[in-house]
Design a binder for these strands. Structure first.
Lengths: 203, 203
DNA sequence: TTCTGGATAGAGCGTTCGTTCTAGAGGAGA
DNA sequence: TCTCCTCTAGAACGAACGCTCTATCCAGAA
């Protein structure tokens, strides 16, 4: 009631189909597949059933601001997948196998087009656009932290857990990339087994 | 002397500065940094000190053909680095540590812009352009084969060597990506140590 | 010398890019 | 009813895109 604006969608309700959300989702999906430069604002607005005016209304910072939001959306998506697997499978080593298999299946089911939700978006642009580099770095750190906590909870020493979490994320990332490019689940399946084996060494 | 044409540059000498080579090198370097869609043909021709006419003379297939040549160039570049390290360091496990450190140093020395020579080029385009996906897949397979041979020579069984080579390439790839995005050598250094540890398990 | 074909040179094509701008629709509060 | 403000709508701009095209250069063959 003061002059300060209310939360933007307080009255209109932040429904899942609300325009801003549709735009972010479309941007995230398209950039995941085609990269930052390969995806146009107009394509995003069409895919989101929104107009150019709406896009620039919600993202006055233009394509760069939209890309950062898309990365954060992809981040959150994988955080939920990660939380689900780590929360379901008790043994951290076993969890790596389950995780890699699920990633492989998701990749195959999308006909090898939906890889890591943030790598493609950020790779070509990170060198030119600092905000995108920062957002991508924060994402990796977040994923690593989740794995690290799981390893600690599994009885692994802090320093070992820290390093293993680094390698777990790196290896899964690289294996997903290799799997996508070679259109085969094998790199991810092998990576899962090796990560499990590596983790059991530190228990 | 027959009607069959001689090798194109037989007389003109395939000097390192020859136009076609300069174009491929510029394309490879630029696409490595900016991706397929982020790199323009005109930018490549300027960087190579060539003209648009020359580019389309040597690459009538246009940007796609040029991108494939750029990937093969990047492939060859890393093959030489790989051959050098694997040929110098006798122990395969130790070789992984040396390799990852050299990759980390190269990345840092380029101020974190020169990552994997083919990932950025191929990621956004592989889904749309089959030739690029195929070239990237062949590249990964080639790198893996070199590592696999080294592991075999180090006394590791065929099946184990096959799988370890997969994980070695995946992990190095992912760690380079993480290192680039977080502007830190740590992911690569940790990856090298873990790969070495993993390899010694199979000896 | 004349001829030939690889290589260089760059103007210009149609298209798409990211962005800006003005206009209007729709709902809440006075 | 009138006002205000968020959000929708899309035409239009200059720049850059990939690519085509014609013209020219020049070394070696005839």
């Amino acid at each position: 009631m003061t002059t300060k604006a209310k939360a933007k969608t307080e009255t209109a309700a932040g429904a899942p189909g609300d325009t801003r959300t549709r735009i972010v989702r479309a941007a995230s999906r398209l950039m995941q597949r085609q990269g930052y430069d390969g995806t146009g604002i107009k394509q995003i607005s069409q895919e989101a059933s929104a107009t150019l005016g709406s896009v620039y209304h919600f993202f006055p910072g233009g394509k760069q601001e939209l890309a950062v939001a898309a990365i954060q959306h992809g981040d959150q998506e994988f955080v939920e997948e990660l939380r689900h697997v780590l929360g379901t499978v008790e043994d951290p080593a076993e969890a790596m196998i389950v995780l890699s298999r699920r990633m492989a299946e998701g990749l195959r089911d999308s006909d090898w087009i939906d890889g890591c939700p943030i790598t493609t978006t950020s790779l070509g642009a990170a060198g030119r656009i600092p905000d995108i580099q920062t957002a991508a770095a924060r994402t990796f750190a977040r994923w690593r932290d989740l794995v690290q906590d799981k390893l600690r909870a599994g009885g692994i020493a802090q320093e070992d857990a820290y390093e293993l979490a680094h390698t777990a994320i790196s290896t899964l990332e690289g294996a997903e990339l290799a799997a996508q490019v070679s259109r085969s689940m094998e790199p991810l399946e092998i990576a899962g087994r090796h990560l499990a084996r590596l983790i059991t060494l530190y228990k």
